[in-house]
Amino acid sequence: NQASVVANQLIPINTALTLAMMRSEVVTPVGIPAEDIPRLVSMQVNRAVPLGTTLMPDMVKGYA
Rank of each mutant, 00 (worst) to 15 (best):
N1H: 07
N1R: 02
Q2P: 15
Q2L: 12
Q2R: 03
Q2H: 12
A3Q: 06
S4N: 01
S4V: 02
S4I: 02
V5A: 14
V5R: 00
V5W: 02
V5I: 07
V5Q: 00
V5K: 00
V6L: 09
V6F: 02
V6C: 03
V6Y: 03
A7E: 00
A7F: 02
A7W: 01
A7G: 03
N8P: 02
N8W: 14
N8F: 13
N8K: 06
Q9S: 13
Q9P: 01
L10S: 11
L10Q: 11
L10P: 14
I11P: 01
I11M: 06
P12T: 09
P12G: 15
P12F: 08
P12N: 13
P12D: 11
I13S: 15
I13N: 07
I13E: 14
I13Q: 06
N14F: 14
N14S: 05
N14H: 13
N14G: 08
T15H: 11
A16K: 06
L17V: 05
L17M: 08
L17G: 01
L17H: 00
L17Y: 00
L17K: 00
T18C: 03
T18M: 11
T18V: 09
L19M: 13
L19T: 14
A20N: 09
A20D: 04
A20L: 13
A20E: 14
M21S: 10
M21G: 03
M22V: 10
M22C: 03
M22Q: 01
R23D: 04
R23T: 05
S24L: 08
S24Q: 08
S24G: 12
S24D: 12
E25M: 07
E25V: 05
V26I: 09
V26F: 15
V26W: 05
V26L: 07
V26D: 15
V27T: 12
V27G: 03
V27R: 07
T28F: 05
T28V: 12
T28C: 05
P29Q: 06
P29F: 08
P29R: 03
P29S: 07
P29I: 10
V30M: 13
V30Y: 13
V30T: 09
V30N: 15
V30L: 11
G31L: 01
G31M: 02
I32M: 04
I32T: 02
I32P: 00
I32A: 02
P33L: 07
P33F: 08
E35C: 15
E35Q: 07
E35P: 07
D36M: 09
D36S: 07
D36I: 05
D36N: 15
D36E: 14
P38L: 13
P38V: 12
P38W: 12
R39D: 03
L40M: 06
L40R: 00
L40E: 00
L40V: 09
L40A: 01
V41N: 05
V41L: 15
V41C: 05
S42M: 12
M43L: 11
M43P: 00
M43F: 12
Q44I: 11
Q44S: 13
V45T: 11
N46S: 12
N46A: 10
N46K: 13
N46V: 13
R47A: 09
A48D: 09
A48C: 06
A48S: 13
V49M: 05
V49W: 02
V49F: 02
V49K: 00
V49Q: 02
P50K: 09
P50N: 13
P50L: 15
P50F: 14
P50C: 08
P50E: 07
L51T: 13
L51P: 12
L51A: 10
L51F: 14
L51Y: 10
G52E: 04
G52F: 06
G52L: 05
G52A: 10
T53Y: 13
T53C: 04
T53H: 14
T53V: 10
T54Q: 04
L55E: 01
L55G: 00
L55A: 01
L55Y: 00
L55Q: 01
L55N: 00
M56P: 02
M56K: 06
M56T: 10
M56A: 11
P57N: 10
P57S: 12
P57E: 08
D58Y: 11
D58N: 13
M59Y: 14
M59A: 10
V60R: 00
V60D: 01
K61W: 10
K61P: 07
K61H: 09
K61V: 11
G62F: 15
G62H: 11
G62P: 11
G62N: 11
Y63I: 04
Y63L: 05
A64G: 12
A64T: 15
A64N: 13
A64M: 10
